[in-house]
Design a protein around this nucleic acid. Structure first.
Lengths: 142, 142
DNA sequence: TGATAATAGTTGACAAAAGCAACTATTTAT
DNA sequence: ATAAATAGTTGCTTTTGTCAACTATTATCA
């Protein structure tokens, strides 16, 4: 068993958990929760998506998700459209307000990432990104 | 502004958030909460640590931490030793049971990581680790 | 020294986040 | 036509987290 390798990976995991926490911190000061933002992100980046699909991509409990979606719906940030073909499904979309709100949050998140890389030399940022791409390739077996 | 770079980094962040979530999942099936495990981890990896230090490293509210520590104490997993020099401080240590329990959880976490890398060729695992080390170096400016 | 401020930790009250299980409505399968 | 499966909702509970008031102890400094 490769304990040394495992420890190195877990050490990186702890480090990167912290990085992600710092990046998400600004969202805690926003008027939406991290969960709500993640949901808005998924809806924004899809033409039409159902709650069922959200539970699989975000791995949320369907009951919990249902409540959050209801809240977003009450806030007029999303719109639910019951499918004609199968009345059990609802297709979710961001409303105009939802799109505007999400884009605000999104550019705040961009600024947050920028604030980290702007202090790093250009070549190193490129290297950083290449390392990230490599990691994803290795882990997904691509 | 380098939107493309930012997007690539954020794409990796979403990917790795998922990886971390999968790795932590087994802890949710254990008899301890993620919070409790994180606290045990910090205590295990220190000679003597105070609650105050835990609040700064784990960024927990001191009231919340106090309660979780009390629970761990009731479960006989940790021991509190009031400092002689300053009776406001208590030094925290894992009890024998606590050490055993933590080591069980810890090796379960190791197995979890192993289950991911055991399907990857050895050279690729090495590459993976090197990418991780490089990322940490770049981000910490080392 | 003696009053005041600061610190570590506890406790009460509360609220948000998340998960589990039972339920409804609808569609699919036998 | 009945049973099984599925999408989503709702009630209930646990986990996580916050805020403020409080105790006990130590540090500060006039």
């Amino acid at each position: 068993m490769n304990l040394e390798e495992i420890n190195k990976i877990r050490s990186f995991n702890r480090f990167y958990t912290n990085v992600l926490g710092l990046l998400d911190k600004h969202l805690l000061d926003s008027e939406y929760t991290l969960t709500e933002v993640r949901i808005m992100y998924e809806i924004y980046n899809s033409n039409e998506i159902t709650a069922k699909e959200l539970t699989t991509t975000l791995k949320f409990d369907k009951g919990y998700l249902s409540r959050v979606l209801k809240k977003l719906s009450n806030l007029k940030l999303i719109v639910k459209n019951v499918s004609d073909k199968d009345k059990r499904h609802s297709y979710l979309k961001l409303s105009k307000t939802g799109i505007l709100e999400f884009e605000k949050l999104n550019s705040a998140s961009n600024s947050q990432v920028l604030s980290i890389i702007e202090n790093i030399e250009k070549e190193k940022v490129n290297a950083l990104i290449n390392h990230m791409i490599s990691i994803e390739k290795i882990l997904t077996g691509k």
